[in-house]
Design a protein around this nucleic acid. Structure first.
Lengths: 343, 343
DNA sequence: TGTTAGCACTCATTTTGGTCGAGTGCTAAC
DNA sequence: GTTAGCACTCGACCAAAATGAGTGCTAACA
């Protein structure tokens, strides 16, 4: 049995309807739709076939049918081609919101997240740029006590990271500045990844301050490792999902918010993969068992040509993929532009 | 009609029971309790009086009674004096968790929040130190483009803030360092508040760089204003409240999480007031209508003698005030010690 | 041969009515 | 002042019945 044109049309109609109503859809509903020239009986026969093919499922005998994951997959991969474009009005509003007041990347990202949540009515997740994808602009050691200095790492996009470094006693602020200058000179404009390679070279040249330099470098390295799997994640619109009947069960809600609280799981959920523009993970495809009945749509953003982070939407499986995809495409592009200008 | 000793005893028993079960408590339940030598009928009479006095309410005619806000207030103010102390085991565990690995204040605070949430099974909120309560340690201008520098403000507790400053074209890194040094020298160890007072004095001395200095100072000032009402807030254990029957309604849950998402409302909720050790706000007293059936308990923490921020617990009105109070007292003190040592 | 009307059937949901039991208020007796 | 007794209230629970959306199958139709 094959998916002929009529079956496809009916399946699409069912999915569309289910996305809107969240109620199992019956043959009559489809038959009544304008453009469908068949009686409920005919539709029933086709639905029966579609069920056998694994595209539909029945919650119970006398209910309508709901699309299976396989159906959504087909929908997303094939049936959705005619991407419903956003209205120019919508685009404009989004652009305006994005290019709002702030020039600080943290604020921009938080801003973008709430905007995404508000326009999609789902939950938005944004992963901030990872340390390893950034380039060093400036390094600065600042004394904070006899034994400790704060190493401040300024990167492109003006992202600032800091870490404590032990220093030999008796060293003064000016000496620290001199060291900072050397480090900056050697590391500036290198991606943070490159610190490792330059490591021994710098050490060889560093004379008196060999020990301190070594410590500074290893702190950067440690920081890299730590933060690469711990870059900031901003979540917005968690409560939005409670508007959907899928989440009327408090227990499901609890699990859901537990996931949102765990940065680790979230990171896993929106992990970047492939160079794909937009990635769609339907239900169990997202790999987080607690979120089996959520779908996750993600897109990457970049600054200049470097991949930076990911923006994503979490919603019920019957989410409006078409709209979400368009929005993510648009926003990731806009965000990339903003960041590239900030370089 | 007065609250004699027996009435008080009965009221306390009712509150205790209701805190444990969340079920309206009837006369028989109280009568059966060991130590109560009265029949249900007598208890009923007293309960009727207590209702008239405004301490109890009946959900419907044939249900038991539930304590009113007035009752909880009395409970908290008078009846709870014999503070149930924490076991030394509990204290030890908490101390250990608090003095965990990290030396960075952000990590310490996040850590403390999850610990509070885990041990109380309610929601924990911690307001990070406000900028204006900190002292400047070091100022540093770092060039990020022809026209912009990043001003990095290192304060005590190694808290780092940064802001963009316009700079005249053609100025180089060493000059910026010189300026940074002047600024640092003039402002070091002053509370950030004092920047205003030193303002004109610094300007008068600053010669060539008058303009830049002025800008730097006003940026600090702006930052102060901004951040003082926007200091970071960490929330943990939001989903915990979903375990309580009070929140089995999805709509309530939605409102609740909406509040947790809004830093502004949260800040209002745990606003510091008075020098009180621990503040308890019962139900509507918390001033946030959406959280009418939540209580909020807060305590302040300090570094050395400066008030820094607030830790708080949000829970259902029938929360275990006794335990929560003890925990907050203990944790705020422990946190204060840790921060004072970091100075 | 594909389409459809008709019909018996299924089954979740809603409605209805009845019982149960926890709890109350009141009264009268102790 | 305390308590036993009793009628009463009212939500919770349960089972039976009604409802209705939807199905599968069959036979008739074009």
């Amino acid at each position: 049995m094959q998916l002929d044109q009529r079956k496809t049309m009916i399946l699409q109609a069912i999915i569309d309807d289910y996305i809107n109503t969240a109620v199992p859809v019956g043959s009559r509903t489809i038959s009544r739709k304008s453009g469908v020239g068949y009686s409920p009986a005919t539709i029933r026969n086709e639905m029966s076939d579609l069920e056998e093919l694994g595209y539909l499922a029945q919650p119970h005998t006398s209910a309508g049918r709901v699309p299976s994951v396989k159906a959504y997959r087909l929908y997303v991969d094939e049936l959705m081609k005619d991407s419903r474009r956003l209205t120019s009005d919508e685009r404009e509003t989004m652009s305006e919101t994005l290019s709002g007041r702030s020039r600080k990347i943290e604020a921009i990202i938080r801003n973008a997240a709430t905007m995404l949540a508000d326009t999609t009515h789902y939950t938005a997740v944004i992963v901030a740029p990872q340390l390893s994808t950034l380039r060093i602009r400036h390094l600065q050691l600042v004394p904070v006590s006899d034994k400790l200095a704060l190493m401040i790492i300024v990167t492109n996009l003006s992202i600032v990271k800091d870490a404590l470094v032990r220093i030999p006693e008796g060293i003064d602020a000016d000496e620290l500045y001199a060291i900072s200058r050397t480090l900056t000179r050697r590391l500036a404009d290198k991606p943070l990844d490159a610190v490792r390679q330059t490591f021994s070279e710098i050490l060889r040249e560093s004379g008196t301050y060999r020990r301190l330099m070594g410590e500074a470098l290893s702190v950067i390295e440690k920081k890299l490792e730590e933060e690469d799997d711990a870059s900031d994640i901003v979540v917005s619109g968690g409560p939005n999902l409670l508007n959907y009947p899928e989440f009327s069960d408090v227990n499901k809600a609890k699990n859901y918010f537990a996931v949102l609280e765990s940065k680790e799981v979230l990171r896993e959920l929106v992990r970047r993969d492939g160079g794909m523009d937009v990635t769609i993970r339907i239900g169990p495809e997202n790999g987080v068992p607690a979120l089996n009945d959520c779908s996750v749509v993600t897109a990457n953003y970049r600054a200049a040509d470097d991949a930076m982070g990911t923006i994503g939407i979490i919603g019920p499986i019957r989410m409006d993929y078409n709209r979400v995809m368009s929005i993510l495409e648009y926003v990731s592009r806009a965000l990339s532009e903003i960041l590239s200008d900030m370089q």
